[in-house]
Simulated assay, not measured.
Amino acid sequence: MLLILNVIYVLIAIAMIALILMQRGAGAQAGSGFGGGASATVFGARGSANFLSKATKWLAISFFVISMGMAWYATRKAGGDAAPTQAAGGMMSEAPAVPAQGGTAPAVPTAPAATVPQAPATPAPQVEVPAAPAQQAPAATQSPESAKPQPPAGG
């Protein structure tokens, strides 16, 4: 039964691909101005929009229904039990179980603790730093007139 369902599933997928590729895109009407207008007469006066879109819709619905059915079937036990089974080889099948309240957790290896030096208990003595002697700031820019030597005053 599952083999037949898989074959039908693949055939529906191939049919959907074919029908989607045969449909016109949004910009297909721009190409009809250059001599491609006769392609719409294959499916009748209205073109292929009705037949292809309806067929694609029903194929997509059946594709999703079969997908959900196969997913539901894969999560159930073969004996008809209603409880879902754990997938063999799944990613979470190897994870350790969470211990119950009051239980002990499995030992996890950790890196050795690094030794961090402690800060001194008393503050360091305050050292006075002498102030730098004040200097006169040099002139940033001088105009060409002020760069000329000035005659001495008084003469």
Rank of each mutant, 00 (worst) to 15 (best):
N6P: 07
A121Y: 12
S67R: 03
P149K: 13
R46M: 03
G36I: 09
A26G: 10
V127K: 07
I8D: 02
I20V: 14
A60N: 00
E128I: 11
G31K: 10
A97I: 11
F64S: 05
Y9A: 03
I8V: 11
Q29E: 10
A71P: 03
P84W: 00
I61N: 08
G90K: 04
P96H: 05
L59G: 00
L5I: 13
V42R: 10
A132C: 07
S39W: 00
A40N: 00
A153K: 14
K77F: 06
A107M: 03
K148G: 10
F63I: 02
S39Y: 00
A18K: 09
A30G: 14
A107I: 11
A132S: 15
N6E: 04
Q101P: 10
A49V: 06
A28C: 14
P144F: 02
A38F: 12
M16W: 00
I20S: 14
Q118E: 15
P133K: 07
A26S: 08
G27H: 07
T141C: 08
I12E: 00
S53T: 06
A95S: 06
S146Y: 01
A137R: 12
L21E: 04
P99T: 01
T115C: 11
Q150F: 07
V127H: 04
A134Y: 05
T56M: 14
P151H: 05
G36M: 14
A40M: 05
T115L: 15
Q101W: 10
A83K: 04
Q118V: 15
Q118N: 15
R76G: 05
A28G: 09
M68H: 12
F63A: 02
V108G: 14
A100N: 12
D81S: 09
T110K: 12
M1H: 13
D81N: 01
G69N: 08
S32E: 13
A87L: 07
E145T: 13
P125N: 09
G27M: 13
